[in-house]
């Protein structure tokens, strides 16, 4: 019986490991080869930082990276403002207005990005003749992609909120606006932050919306990489390996940071909880999964 469980554990662990290997092997191999002068995986060449130098000194590449980051941050800020206000407004509106917003909000979420991008291009560029060079279609497209997810991550927080605190603030003489700012917003901040983070990652990962709405001379990482893989310029190709490695490292660091912080908070909460009779554990998971 015991042997059987050990085998089961081993089999399960092995399966998880193989799937992880599938997910990470390509990225890790590319990371290793990004530090060599090799132009293809498998060929063994000497250690070299050439790819990283190319990556950070070629204006074409640095412009593209900075452009992508600015676009992501800018669209995420607008999307977070709109989505948060929308969620608060929808929650306190009449049922019909609220379900109108919620339904429309769901469209970009379930829709294919190709269709979202194409339809925005048709409306803004073809019908309204707004030039793509103005960046308006691009930003509008990315905000349309991101705002609904901000809305969806803020809404549960508003629903969980204790509505009597807002009423209490009003009774104590706060204006509705002050009550909103001092009472409501602080309670939904976790939702706003995760909505913002989600918006940034969605914008960074987008290809289709940018493809259909971007100015001809502007590239995001995705549109650039897709074009670069079609052409066969090797210095650029291998510099992108370096980019992939840098992004991978940033993601690892961010994830580690979030985990460490959450762990510390859990420990503090745990201590706090023990003093007050063991309540308050396990909050982290819920917070993470929201």
């Amino acid at each position: 019986m015991k042997k059987n469980t050990a085998f089961k554990e081993f089999f399960r662990g092995g399966f998880l490991f193989l799937v992880l290997l599938f997910l990470y092997l390509p990225i890790l191999l590319l990371a290793v080869y990004s530090f060599t002068s090799s132009t293809q995986i498998g060929a063994i060449r000497a250690f070299s930082l050439k790819n990283y130098i190319t990556l950070f000194t070629t204006p074409e590449l640095t412009d593209m990276i900075l452009g992508t980051v600015f676009l992501a941050l800018g669209s995420a800020v607008i999307a977070t403002l709109l989505g948060t206000m929308g969620a608060i407004g929808a929650f306190y509106s009449k049922r019909s207005a609220s379900s109108f917003i919620t339904t429309l909000n769901q469209v970009p979420v379930v829709n294919a990005d190709v269709v979202t991008g194409f339809s925005i291009c048709i409306l803004l560029v073809i019908v309204l003749h707004i030039s793509k060079e103005s960046y308006i279609p691009l930003v509008a497209g990315h905000v349309t992609l991101c705002a609904p997810f901000v809305f969806l991550s803020v809404m549960p927080r508003i629903k969980q909120m204790d509505s009597s605190i807002y009423e209490a603030a009003l009774d104590l003489g706060a204006t509705p606006f002050a009550a909103l700012r001092e009472v409501v917003i602080p309670q939904i901040v976790p939702g706003i932050i995760s909505g913002f983070a989600l918006a940034v990652t969605l914008s960074l990962d987008d290809y289709f919306i940018a493809m259909y709405t971007k100015p001809a001379t502007f590239d995001t990482i995705s549109t650039y990489v897709v074009n670069a893989t079609k052409g066969a310029q090797t210095t650029i190709k291998t510099a992108l390996w370096a980019l992939s490695t840098v992004i991978f490292l940033i993601v690892v660091l961010v994830v580690l940071g979030i985990n460490l912080r959450a762990n510390r908070r859990e420990k503090e909460m745990g201590r706090f909880g023990r003093e007050r009779g063991g309540a308050g554990k396990g909050g982290r998971n819920a917070e993470f999964m929201d």
Binding site: L23, Y24, P26, I27, L29, L30, T201, L204, D205, Y207, I221, S222, V225, V226, T229, L240, W241, L243, S244, I247, F248, V251, V254, V255
Partner: peptide, 12 residues
């Protein structure tokens, strides 16, 4: 992997 740009992952 969700948070790593998909085009770079497909390149890999």
């Amino acid at each position: 992997p969700m948070w790593i740009n998909f085009s770079l992952r497909i390149t890999a």
